[in-house]
Amino acid sequence: MSQTAPIRVGRIGYLNVLPIYHPIEAGEVAGPLSVVSGPPAELNRLARAGELDVTACSSIEYAMAAKDYLLLPRLAIGSRGHVKSVLLLSRHPVARLDGKAVRVSFQTHTSVALLRLFLERRVGIAPRYESGDVTRALQGGERPDAFLAIGDEALRLADHPDYPHRWDLGSVWLDWTGLPFIFGVWIARRQAAVAAPQAVAEAARALVAAKDWSAGRPEVVARLAAGQGGFSEQAMRAYFEGLVFDFGPREQEGLAVFFAMLAEAGHIETAPRLEFLDI
């Protein structure tokens, strides 16, 4: 990779990252970027394969391969309470899910890990987890006992009449720990940062600048999201106001606590240190 080659940047294909990528895609913020879109699990795979240089990724991906990555400073995605797009929807009260099947998406790793911590450690039950396409199942007439919905799917299914019991996992985490929850981070591959340090740092600065651009134009973000997702501008304005795109000390503390819990539960070998790219 040369210093002048475009940096391959991964973009999660959900509305929640629109504030980070729209300014770049619209030419409002310049940077040496070539954007690749996909669900979180696919971006994780591409990053591990060396096919992305900088990418948004699930928080647990960093925990599982921290030796390969550096975190981008000042940039993450999470919530300080209701997140609205990571929901456990159930036909039964949560305590009655013990031994029952909970459908989870194969497209997310962090949200599934948080769900398992919540149900197994916080509630004290042991459901069975099954991977599958929830929207397709519901459209086909299936009614799983419970399912985890994320991203745009969660926004669409939040008020499904057959699922009266609903838990917002961002709110669950805040009630449990008193801390923000970070669902996703932006990472640079260490090899890319060594091979093209100036270009990778410039790409990181462009992503942070895009975040700042959108923070000053919430009405633009809401209008664009409404047009892309089929929701009202008011609903999108409220949705984005509930998201956190900063990665300050409290957000870092919340992520460190999550990693420590994952390690204690045996879901990861050890809780990694948070190491940042110098930009």
Rank of each mutant, 00 (worst) to 15 (best):
G38N: 14
L43G: 11
A56P: 04
L43P: 13
S37Y: 11
D68H: 09
L71I: 01
S59R: 08
A65F: 02
T55D: 02
A56H: 05
S34Q: 15
L70A: 14
V35R: 03
S58Y: 00
S37G: 14
S58P: 10
D53F: 03
L43K: 03
A56G: 09
A63K: 01
R45H: 02
P40F: 05
L70K: 05
L52C: 14
M64K: 13
G50Q: 13
N44P: 00
S37R: 14
G50S: 14
D53P: 13
A49Q: 09
T55H: 12
C57K: 02
A49F: 01
G38Y: 07
P40K: 06
V35K: 04
Y69W: 10
S37V: 09
S34V: 03
L46W: 03
R45Y: 00
T55W: 05
V36M: 13
L52P: 11
A65I: 03
D53L: 11
G38V: 12
P39S: 11
P40Q: 13
A47K: 02
A47T: 05
L72E: 06
D53C: 09
M64C: 13
V35Y: 00
V36F: 12
Y69K: 08
G50N: 14
A65S: 14
A56L: 14
G38E: 12
A66T: 08
S59D: 08
G50W: 14
E42K: 15
D68K: 06
V54D: 05
T55K: 04
L43V: 06
Y62T: 06
A49N: 03
V54E: 05
D68I: 01
A66M: 09
R45P: 01
Y62L: 07
L72F: 04
S58L: 06
A56I: 06
A47I: 02
A56C: 10
E61P: 00
Y69S: 11
L52R: 07
A41P: 03
V54H: 02
K67F: 04
D53G: 08
S58H: 05
L72C: 11
A65M: 06
T55Q: 08
D68T: 07
R45I: 00
D68Q: 13
P40E: 10
L52E: 07
A56W: 00
V35D: 04
R48T: 01
L43T: 06
N44W: 01
L52H: 07
N44A: 15
D53I: 06
V35S: 05
G50C: 13
Y69D: 08
A49H: 01
A65H: 14
M64S: 10
N44D: 15
V36S: 10
Y69V: 07
V35M: 08
E51Y: 01
G38S: 14
V35Q: 04
Y62K: 12
R48N: 07
V36A: 10
D53E: 12
N44K: 09
L71P: 01
R48K: 12
C57Q: 14
K67M: 09
S34C: 10
E51V: 02
E51F: 01
P39T: 09
G50T: 11
Y62P: 07
A41Y: 00
S34W: 01
S34F: 03
L71K: 00
C57M: 15
M64A: 15
D68P: 05
D53T: 07
P39V: 14
K67D: 15
D68F: 00
S34N: 15
S34D: 15
A66L: 08
V36E: 12
A66Y: 08
